[in-house]
Design a protein around this nucleic acid. Structure first.
Length: 758
RNA sequence: GGGCGCGUAGCUCAGUGGGAGAGCACCUCGUUGACAUCGAGGGGGUCGCAAGUUCAAUCCUUGCCGCGCCCACCA
């Protein structure tokens, strides 16, 4: 006999272990079944399960379990991302506690430390994913820095280089002065900020007492000014073009140039040009062949190109000093408040600095073309569709992708430098050496480029690198392109777009047929969850208290398309009650001797009430199927919830009571079988969303039957199962009883008292 | 500046060209038998505002207001 309540804490672990041990999660590359593949968005190796993970992996697991039950050979590829910056920061922080920096250790030792850290702490999220019930193929777990994946990264880099799609360039990058690395545009976060705009007088050369007034939000960069620009049509300054101003504090003479970049409406109409420290100024500098004077070091402190008094000074201190110096020279005109957005590094939280460095770039514009076309022609479809606009918008305006990072943890760039700085990019050091020898006519000392690649450079290969590429494996042939990618909108640019580009370029086909973009999970008030706000709901805590199934079902029920999920704990509680309800319904059937009967034919039921529940099962199954196929998980969840509670428990089980209490053996027999059958269908239908409780009930309701997960097909029925006459009759009875109850309530008829209706 | 999404019951959210819904919360009644993590019943909403299309609009169109997000720019 079943216990009175379901206690998930006591069964989940055991069930998961049994599933995993059975090998049922594994893909079978030799199978004749149609494949179905989802690539897990590899969580950061530093990660631990947060609510966003819980949502995305629940959805993926629902899809995987659903298709597995439908007989597909499912591959849900597991693995983790090495997460360059994030991981390096974690390990550096640990070292800092011991008063050690990575430079004290040296590169090799440091990287060793990171691997040690990974071995010890890197598996956290995988344990947590198991608790959620995720049926990933753990046997194929990959890491973005596995040997095979490293080889793929290496090949992609060298191939693209040889195709002219990767190149080295000296230009401005977003420099993170805290982490001492370049970052890509996407890793820069624009934040609103109240700034100020200062107006300074630059004395015009040879015209005593005449000034050109420039406005700037960044006074400290004036030390690197190499021109002042005015608009060619600006009457106010026309006579000054071609003349020079004397840069205060520095003494350098810099030209006044005409360039359309200067906007007469903004500031004073005259803009100082600092080509080495501003993206727009850089372009102006290129057009006018201006000198580029770099005045910052890697910490964004003033360097030797600044006047002596400023050297070594932090950029913001320098700003104050410059303003006060200009003031005392009588060259400060005014300052006004100015709202602006400032660029912050998304990892470091400090303001990034445009800085002139040598970096490696991908020609994303070229790679984007087929990726745009693939979505335009529907080879890959976004669900919901409107995310395609976001994708197009970014892809059509894509800029070169800076892929080199000045870090130690990651894929080191396969480029080697000769003594004179000439470089050789090749698949192996030997090949590079050979190329160098040919170039120099002798063997020379080579040094490898110390930089590593942006983490996303390797994750963009995930859909095929995990399948063994560049080897032409059976897996690659079988599972690529994958069926669906499930992810949040926040990484459409970082990851989805880049997988599209890489997949099309190297595999000649899209990496996935469908991209399902789900919502963000927010707190009850709609705030983004964050540690600093203290509003984080920990999915593991919810699993502890309510069970994994309750959390999963809640997330599925709230996962409507096109809206963020505001998670209220009361919802989880409500769905926990649902699992209890289901459990007790099963207990009821057990108490009444209902057992699954082999060979039971639902179409052969004779009692109207049984025909009715068979028809209702049919309708629920049809609706759940339709909803899951359409990625409408909330509709599937609600349909099954309403059917299980509102139809099966509230009505059908009540109707069976008088049958079981009477002594019509034939009726009792049929009803027992029908009840057991209907409940079995419910367990199967709920299994993708609530795998644990359904598996436990499946095992307890009949002796020695095999795991629900392993053998049971998803319920699909012929239309003939629906008996319209029985459905109409019973629906009428249900409505009639409801009405009678309402009337009795309205008339205040005491329970048990009889009332005549006319 | 460009784009996207959202405003439905006290709260969290579904939904549809023709009856306005669910869960939670609230009120009334009910515990010997599947389930109080429950059952039966109930109160509560001019579906953001305005105009238009339509026999009919919460739903379609336009405008406005409010909220959120993304991208770009920012001397």
């Amino acid at each position: 006999m079943l216990d009175k309540t379901y206690r998930p804490q006591e069964v989940e672990q055991r069930i998961y272990d049994a599933w995993e041990a059975s090998g049922a999660f594994g893909a079978d590359v030799t199978s004749n079944a149609r494949p179905y593949c989802i690539m897990i968005p590899p969580p950061n190796v530093t990660g631990s399960l947060h609510m966003g993970h819980a949502l995305t992996f629940t959805i993926q697991d629902i899809l995987i379990r659903y298709h597995r039950m439908n007989g597909r050979d499912t591959l849900w590829q597991s693995g983790a991302d090495h997460a360059g910056i994030a991981t390096q920061m974690v390990v550096e922080r640990q070292l800092a506690e011991q008063g050690v920096t990575r430079h004290d250790l040296g590169r090799e030792k440091f990287v060793e430390k990171v691997w040690d850290w990974k071995a010890e702490s890197g598996g956290t999220i995988n344990k947590q994913l198991r608790r959620l019930g995720a049926s990933l193929d753990w046997s194929r777990e990959r890491f973005t820095m596995d040997d095979g994946l490293c080889e793929a990264v290496n090949k992609v880099f060298v191939d693209l280089y040889k195709q002219g799609l990767i190149y080295k360039d000296k230009r401005l990058v977003n420099w993170d002065p805290k982490l001492h690395t370049a970052i890509s545009d996407l890793e820069v976060e624009q934040r609103e900020s109240k700034g100020q705009m200062w107006h300074f007088r630059y004395p015009v050369e040879g015209q005593e007492g005449k000034y050109l007034v420039v406005a700037t939000t960044r006074p400290e960069t004036m030390l690197g000014d190499t021109a002042v620009a005015v608009h060619p049509d600006d009457e106010r300054y026309r006579d000054l073009v071609g003349k020079k101003v004397k840069l205060p504090l520095v003494g350098r003479l810099i030209p006044i140039i005409a360039d359309e970049y200067a906007d007469p409406e903004k500031g004073t109409g005259a803009v100082k040009i600092t080509p080495a420290h501003d993206f727009n100024d850089f372009e102006v500098g290129r057009r006018h062949d201006l000198k580029m004077i770099n005045i910052f070091d890697r910490d964004a402190k003033l360097n030797e190109n600044a006047p002596e008094a400023y050297r070594g000074m932090d950029r913001f201190e320098a700003r104050k000093k410059i303003v006060s110096e200009m003031d005392s020279l009588g060259l400060f005109e005014k300052v006004e408040d100015n709202d602006m957005t400032l660029p912050y590094g998304d990892r470091s939280g400090v303001i990034v600095e445009p800085w002139l460095t040598d970096q490696w770039y991908v020609d994303a514009k070229t790679l984007a073309k087929p990726a745009i076309e693939a979505v335009e022609t529907g080879k890959t479809v976004f669900v919901p569709k409107h995310w395609e606009n976001t994708y197009f918008e970014w892809m059509r305006n894509i800029l070169p992708w800076c892929i080199s990072r000045q870090l130690w943890w990651g894929h080191q760039i396969p480029a080697w430098y000769g003594p004179d700085g000439a470089f050789f990019v090749d698949y192996t050091e030997d090949a590079a050496r050979a190329a160098a020898e040919q170039h120099y006519g002798k063997s020379v000392e080579l040094t490898r480029d110390p930089d590593v690649l942006d983490t996303w450079f390797s994750s963009q290969l995930w859909p095929f690198s995990t399948l063994g590429w560049p080897e032409q494996t059976e897996e690659l042939k079988r599972y690529y392109p994958t069926d669906v990618l499930v992810t949040g909108f926040d990484i459409i640019f970082f990851w989805v777009a880049r997988m599209m580009m890489a997949g099309l370029h190297f595999m000649g086909d899209v990496p996935f047929r469908t991209v399902y973009i789900h919502a963000l999970v927010r707190d009850e008030q709609g705030q983004k969850m964050s540690k600093s706000k203290g509003n984080v709901i920990d999915p593991l805590d919810l699993i502890d208290r309510y069970g994994a199934d309750s959390l999963r079902f809640t997330l599925a029920a709230l996962a409507a398309q096109g809206r963020d999920i505001k998670l209220a704990e009361s919802r989880v509680e409500g769905y926990r009650n649902f699992t209890t309800k289901l459990w007790n319904a099963a207990r009821f059937t057990q108490m009444n001797g209902c057992k699954a009967e082999t060979g039971f034919d639902p179409a052969a039921c004779t009692l109207t009430v049984n025909k009715w529940i068979v028809g209702k099962v049919f309708e629920a199954a049809r609706e759940a199927t339709r909803a899951i196929e359409a990625y409408r998980f909330n509709e599937a969840a609600n349909a099954l919830y309403q059917f299980t509670w509102g139809t099966f428990c509230d009505w059908y089980l009540e109707f069976t009571k008088p049958i079981f209490d009477a002594d019509d053996e034939a009726a009792i027999h049929e009803t027992r079988a029908a009840t057991a059958w209907a409940l079995d269908q419910i367990l199967k239908l709920l299994h993708p969303m609530m795998p644990y409780v359904t598996e436990e009930l499946w095992a307890q309701l009949a002796d020695s039957r095999a795991s629900l997960l392993i053998v049971e097909p998803w319920p699909a029925f012929a239309d003939s199962l629906l008996d319209p006459a029985a459905m109409a009759e019973m629906d009428f009875v249900v409505r009639l009883i409801s009405d009678i109850r309402a009337v009795r309530a309205e008339m205040n008829v005491p329970p048990g008292a009889k009332v005549a209706l006319f």
